[in-house]
């Protein structure tokens, strides 16, 4: 590649990076402006007087801390459940050579490929009949069931290439099945499990459809739903400054995860695509 090609590539990449990040930076700027400045035309690029009133507003006048806590609880719990159940299932299926294998793969992978909305009415109907709506536990179960797909996808791919001899050797050394799985297989699978857990956590944090429809109690809302309720909070003016503050607070955890684990996230997403 010539020097000219390099310069053009840099210009295009910089433009794309700006295109990707500009809305985020604009939200940060808006969140630090006063109510008057947000509505001022022409808009100022940076806040004239930096104020934190939007942040104090969403945390003191509204239960945004509660929403964020709920998001954390749901994401952490559903990720843990999916990791345990998904890793077990992936290990089992990777060792299978029967006709069941294809069916089990379909069962575990399909929920991740299909749009979640297909299951909305079924789950809503069933959960309301057994009083699992309006509870964080119900939401955790739904998230965990959907996360099984991503965990299974990433880990089955890993276990298939896992040397069987290692397990056999451990068994000969007197380990039980469980012992061999926990002491030999899992430690080696830890990096892959972390990748799967990261993706599951992000999906759960971002999930909106089920959080919106299954849970109606304000104290049980998660951040993505809480934020969408802000725009209808005032009949006259949409509180863009407060919304921006909430956008920043809700985005922060996932942005930090991407900054820290960009490589892992990319490798996890492509695990299945790379598989021949």
């Amino acid at each position: 590649m010539g020097r000219g090609g390099c310069v053009i590539a840099y210009i295009l990449l910089t433009a794309l990076a700006f295109f990707s990040l500009a809305p985020c930076l604009w939200e940060v700027s808006t969140s630090l402006k006063s109510l008057q400045e947000v509505m001022r035309v022409p808009q100022t690029l940076f806040p004239g007087d930096i104020t934190t009133e939007n942040y104090t507003e969403i945390f003191q006048r509204r239960p945004f801390d509660r929403y964020i806590l709920n998001s954390f609880v749901v994401a952490a719990a559903s990720t843990s459940i999916a990791l345990i159940a998904g890793a077990f299932a992936a290990y089992s299926v990777s060792r299978m050579r029967s006709k069941w294998r294809a069916w089990l793969m379909l069962l575990f992978l399909l929920p991740g490929i299909l749009p979640a909305v297909l299951f909305l009415v079924p789950i809503y109907r069933f959960f309301s009949s057994i009083r699992l709506t309006n509870s964080l536990f119900g939401l955790i179960l739904v998230h965990a069931a959907f996360h099984i797909s991503i965990v299974f996808w990433i880990m089955e791919n890993f276990f298939e290439r896992f040397p069987r001899d290692l397990v056999d050797a451990a068994r000969l050394d007197g380990f039980s099945h469980m012992g061999a799985f926990f002491r030999v297989v899992l430690p080696l699978a830890a990096p892959v499990a972390i990748t799967a857990g990261l993706l599951a956590f992000i999906f759960s944090w971002n999930e909106f459809l089920f959080a919106l429809t299954l849970v109606t109690d304000d104290s049980l809302r998660v951040a993505t739903v809480g934020i969408s309720m802000l725009s209808g909070a005032s009949a006259y003016e949409i509180p863009w400054g407060q919304i921006a503050a909430a956008v920043v607070m809700t985005s922060l955890p996932v942005v930090l995860l991407v900054l820290a684990f960009q490589r892992k996230i990319v490798s996890g997403l492509t695990a299945g695509a790379v598989k021949e």
Binding site: L13, L16, P23, W26, T30, I227, V247, T250, V258, V266
Partner: peptide
Amino acid sequence: FFRTSLLVPWVLPPAVIGLAWRWIFY
């Protein structure tokens, strides 16, 4: 740096992205 920046839109919550663009296109 470029890979991380370009990945950001995909990893943000769609509901949050909707609100951010609604404000930009207000």
